[in-house]
Design a protein around this nucleic acid. Structure first.
Lengths: 151, 151
DNA sequence: ATAAAGTCTATAGTACTAGTATACTTTTAG
DNA sequence: CTAAAAGTATACTAGTACTATAGACTTTAT
């Protein structure tokens, strides 16, 4: 039940990119900066951000002073959307996927016990990921920092 | 966020092995029978059941009329236990794993937004898997069959 | 004794993961 | 107008995990 590095790095990067928007500073951030902050190979991150761009979630500016920035407001981008671009369906097994269903090999899908439970799991995961926006994450980070009294 | 074939087949097999116990018939079932019913390569299933046996969840009887049977009552075996034997930790990312924690590369774990959300995801999954026993699955299958009025 | 069944270990093909490399295009500063 | 900064795009690779398959062995019922 693991998140790939691709997915992990992409999510981290998007969270970083949401920060300046919330702070009302210049939203354009360079790959290099994100890579450094989050300890990611810049070249690998490049690929990931490109996928996200091609999926319409990021825009970019070329040339000197360029970089990436969110295509929509942080409150309109959910972790579920990002996850699906990078790691595919949320469902643990294809036969319970809403977005990309495929039959699994069980004798009778309707009464398959595993399918029933995995359907619950899928819904639990999707509930969290689809109802958590980048803005929610940023807000949560800030509140944790406050609670710790640091920074 | 996928369940491996290993995990899928193992869970299916355990659900099959729980049925006769609930029905109070002879609990010993052969690999071949499970493999046929669930469309699994018998040799692959063999390995999987062996792992489950070595983990203490199954017993077996060799020789003619032999086969596998549950080591404990279906109500005492949870899907979470089975899953962890076959697929490892439930957590999507190591730094939120209860059973086998490892730090991830983020700059500050306490305030890492991704970690906070993935912690929620882990808990949601574990909640379901650790609170669903094989007996629960069997019960649920029966109730679905009744609702459909079939069999 | 023999056949049915599980045990155990090795190995092989394939796909996926996580990253490198390289050659390009666009943009801005000077 | 050109050099450097930055993104674009694609190809490649080493390693690992996944999904089995194979074969030799052990135990047990009849």
């Amino acid at each position: 039940m693991r998140l790939s590095k691709r997915g992990e790095y992409g999510l981290r990067a998007m969270i970083v990119l949401a920060e300046p928007v919330e702070k009302n500073t210049m939203p354009v951030v360079q790959i290099k900066e994100i890579a450094q902050r989050e300890q990611i190979s810049p070249k690998f991150l490049e690929q990931i951000l490109l996928s996200l761009k091609n999926a319409g979630m990021l825009h970019s500016k070329m040339g000197v002073g360029g970089g990436y920035y969110l295509a929509r407001s942080p409150s309109e981008i959910t972790l579920g959307q990002i996850f699906r671009v990078l790691d595919g369906p949320v469902a643990p097994i294809k036969c319970v996927s809403q977005m990309s269903y495929e039959p699994c090999g069980c004798p009778d899908e309707q009464t398959c016990g595993l399918r029933l439970v995995m359907g619950d799991v899928r819904n639990a995961i999707a509930d969290i990921l689809d109802n958590t926006s980048l803005a929610d994450v940023t807000r949560r980070q800030i509140s944790v920092r406050k609670k710790l009294g640091i920074e």
